[in-house]
Write a protein that binds this DNA or RNA. Sequence first.
DNA 1: GCCAAGTATCTTGATGTCGAGTCTCCTGCC
DNA 2: GGCAGGAGACTCGACATCAAGATACTTGGC
Lengths: 187, 187
Amino acid sequence: MSAESSEASGRPGSAWDGEGPAPQRWDEVDRLVSAWRHERPDLDVSPLEVLSRVTRLARHLDRARRTAFAERGLETWEFDVLSALRRAGTPYQLSPGQLLTQTLVTSGTMTNRIDRLAAKGLVVRGPDPNDRRGVLVRLTDSGREVADAALTSLLKNERELLAALPDRRLGELADLLRELTVQFESE
Amino acid sequence: MSAESSEASGRPGSAWDGEGPAPQRWDEVDRLVSAWRHERPDLDVSPLEVLSRVTRLARHLDRARRTAFAERGLETWEFDVLSALRRAGTPYQLSPGQLLTQTLVTSGTMTNRIDRLAAKGLVVRGPDPNDRRGVLVRLTDSGREVADAALTSLLKNERELLAALPDRRLGELADLLRELTVQFESE
DNA sequence: GCCAAGTATCTTGATGTCGAGTCTCCTGCC
DNA sequence: GGCAGGAGACTCGACATCAAGATACTTGGC
């Protein structure tokens, strides 16, 4: 990647040419990148234009979800697990290992999560009939209700966050992000 | 947002029309969205195409950075703070409050981080001459060296992650992400 | 000048996560 | 069929984070 990327001009909104709509507002990452270009003009910091925004946006999302779920007495991590089981379809059960790859946590964390969800009666742990090492985690009726209700309100919130962009651009954004994620999932 | 977004077809790569290059590989989010469309056909889950990818990509990035920094004996959170101070420019000092907005953590967390960085000799805490409530955190020479070295290797790693996309598309991606982040930063 | 409201930072307690190690069981090779 | 290596889930200790509240100071209105 060269230093002549679309952001090299030092202002946001690569497509703006002085006419048409005003340029977008600066965000924290614009300030961050601009500061680095001043302090370290020897480095090409353009990767941060994308990756710092991903990290920061994820943190904002995390906060928004945390407070939204909290109103329903639900923790974000609880939804992560319950929703994975819910969308697996009947009989709504997965192994801890499958849950790991879907939620991107370590096995110790997942054991702990399952324990607490089981204590709340949202899931039950059972043996895997085909592998005596294995365990199958299954959603209870109560857990399914919680997952369904939470998904509906999550989507409502997230739709509002995306209202700033038309569908066509959201599709482009999804495609661009996919190209970055596939690298992490290839093994 | 309607259910007729570019992703409604249920396969990734909205621009693919059956000719030209093959469609991209599916990622976990494609599977996730496809599963929801089967289980909850009554809901429009298209927001997840974007936001679940952001969350997951951030987690992958987090892991990659964690292991990369660990080779240098550095924690991700240490770099977050040191780099904010470094790019502030001489005399490399900021208040805890300014560090909060840059790193998106709570004040308790920042107090703790500064304590530990000070114990390692990477920053020093001093009084704010203009506000006796305030504190100024300043980078030591040692802290500056650590920050500079870590930034260089961070950028090297991240450039590789972005190599899959040409500069023009990275610029588009940065612009799209900016439009989502500004909403969180407006107050 | 004083007071109320606001701001900046720190303290505390609860909690979730990680990473390394352990135990059990499976799989394929000889 | 036995054994080595791998895979799946769990245990445990260390630790970073958060939320809420406490403390000290500042600011603006009167």
